[in-house]
Simulated scan of single mutants.
Amino acid sequence: MALTKWAVDPTHSSVDFSIKHMMISKVKGTFTSFDALIEADPQDLTTANISFTVDLASVNTNNADRDNHLRSADFFDVENQPQLTFVAKSIRKTGDGEYNVTGDLTLHGVTRLETFAVTFEGEGKDPWGNEKVGFSANGSLKRSDYGLTWNAALETGGFLVGDDVKVSIELQAVKQA
């Protein structure tokens, strides 16, 4: 099957993350502005062309002070590094509708290979006849690998902000003409 172009349906998609706070709990957040370029046969992603862009200024953790701190030079430095990008380099099928998607992730001026576990969730037509597909992606990255090293030592030992960031993406896309 030929590759088909798909456009992200942002009202039915999300880019979420979580990170340990004070070594005892997790803080969750989301990015409200993102897009992807997808050319794929949804039944076989191994030949797909996938690139993803996240507007880092759109971070939302339900706390304005924390969100502003994340946008600052201590973390994302959105003034100088406004986007996170991911470009798939290899896609390996690991099971029925299951893939490992490896590519160049660029954040804070650093590019590294990262792998996400991607699941094809299905396809169907919406009430208006538009063809839609759904995917889930999960992975983790170390923020220190990208130069995001701001932290504060805790009186009890350890650090305020964890290094491992869990990433979860739910993506619905609509077939383009």
Rank of each mutant, 00 (worst) to 15 (best):
K142M: 12
E121W: 02
D74V: 03
N63S: 13
E98Y: 08
D65P: 04
N130K: 15
R112V: 06
A48F: 01
A73P: 10
L84H: 05
S136M: 11
I91K: 05
T102I: 07
N68G: 12
R71W: 07
R71P: 00
T102Y: 03
K132V: 08
G97P: 01
G124P: 08
V78W: 07
V87S: 08
N63E: 14
E123G: 15
A88H: 00
G124F: 07
N62C: 13
S140R: 11
R71K: 15
G122C: 12
F75L: 11
S140I: 06
F120H: 11
T119C: 05
D65G: 11
D55R: 09
N100H: 14
T85F: 08
D104F: 03
H69S: 09
T47H: 15
N63P: 08
G139I: 06
E121Q: 15
K132D: 05
L141D: 01
L105V: 06
F52Y: 14
F135P: 02
V59M: 06
A117S: 13
Q81P: 03
T106S: 11
F75M: 01
F86N: 04
T47V: 10
S72W: 09
A64L: 12
E79T: 15
R92L: 12
N80P: 05
G109K: 08
K125M: 13
D67K: 04
L56I: 09
G95K: 08
H69K: 10
T106H: 01
F120W: 10
F86K: 00
W128Q: 12
E114G: 07
S72Y: 12
T85S: 12
A117P: 01
R71F: 09
P82Y: 03
G97D: 07
V133W: 00
Q83G: 00
P82L: 02
D55A: 14
R66V: 05
R71S: 00
T94N: 10
A48W: 03
S51P: 06
F75Q: 02
L107R: 01
V54R: 06
N130I: 13
G129Q: 12
T61E: 09
S58C: 11
S140F: 05
D104V: 04
L70C: 07
N49V: 15
H108Y: 04
K89S: 12
F52S: 03
N60Y: 12
V110P: 03
E121Y: 02
L141H: 01
D74P: 01
L70H: 03
S58E: 07
G109M: 06
Q81L: 07
D74E: 11
K89L: 04
E79K: 15
S72C: 10
L70N: 03
S58T: 08
G109W: 04
F135I: 08
H69D: 15
N130C: 08
P127T: 07
F86I: 05
V54M: 09
R66P: 05
L141A: 02
A64Y: 09
A64M: 13
S58P: 07
S136K: 14
G122F: 10
G97K: 00
D96F: 01
F135R: 00
H69L: 14
